[in-house]
């Protein structure tokens, strides 16, 4: 039997690619932690059917790094007005930077983190989305998230609900 935490976990993506990480790195995921394993097996294979390989590769990269450098908890409310002020660890800043992660990948990662139960990754991606929304008007947010436009009636209703601000601000 493998020593506790020293076993190998192989994650198979929805398109069949396999990524390896140690048991201790996989502990961060609620789903992987609770997955059934054979006691004598040094290597456990788990199918992650809801996550494609490009995304799973990044998820595994995150889990491996987290095993070496824990991500600080994100305070609520946020303790800063920019993403880098709130997340002051360079590796994590870089991991979700615009250069390294496009919009679709960010939302895929968010969805994967939610599916796998990886709270720090979920927090990090949610934080990134929060700052992508921040400072944008409703139309820009709709464009970012590719959401349909509101009907004029719905828009009027939304404004009416907060007229105390729109009229006086």
């Amino acid at each position: 039997m493998a020593d506790e935490g020293n076993g190998i976990i192989r994650l198979r993506s929805s398109d069949g690619k396999v990524f390896e990480l140690t048991e201790s790195a996989a502990e961060i995921s609620e789903l992987l932690k609770d997955s059934p394993r054979e006691e004598d097996d040094e290597v456990t294979e788990i199918d992650i059917v809801r996550v494609a390989s490009p995304c799973l590769e990044k998820v595994v990269e995150f889990m491996k790094h987290y095993d070496e450098e824990k991500m600080k908890e994100i305070p609520t409310p946020l303790g800063g007005s920019t993403f880098n002020e709130v997340m002051d660890q360079p590796w994590y800043q870089d991991f979700v930077s615009d250069e390294k992660m496009n919009r679709d990948m960010l939302f895929n990662m968010l969805s994967a983190a939610n599916f796998l139960g990886i709270k720090p990754l979920l927090d990090l991606t949610c934080l990134k989305v929060t700052f992508q929304i921040t400072g944008k008007n409703a139309e820009e947010i709709r464009e970012l998230l590719r959401l349909p436009e509101l009907t004029p009636e719905e828009e009027a209703k939304a404004r009416e609900e907060h007229s105390w601000i729109f009229e006086e601000a």
């Binding site: 609520t76 409310p77 946020l78 949610c126 934080l127 989305v129 929060t130 929304i133 921040t134 400072g135 944008k136 008007n137 409703a138 947010i141 709709r142 998230l145 959401l147 349909p148 509101l150 719905e154 828009e155 939304a158 404004r159 609900e161 907060h162 601000i165 729109f166 601000a169």
Partner: peptide, 19 residues
């Protein structure tokens, strides 16, 4: 995600994004 936004953002912009 919305919970981390400022109230001003939520009230002025976000509430008008979608139903």
């Amino acid at each position: 995600i919305l919970g981390w936004l400022l109230t001003s953002e939520l009230v002025k912009s976000v509430s008008g994004v979608s139903n």
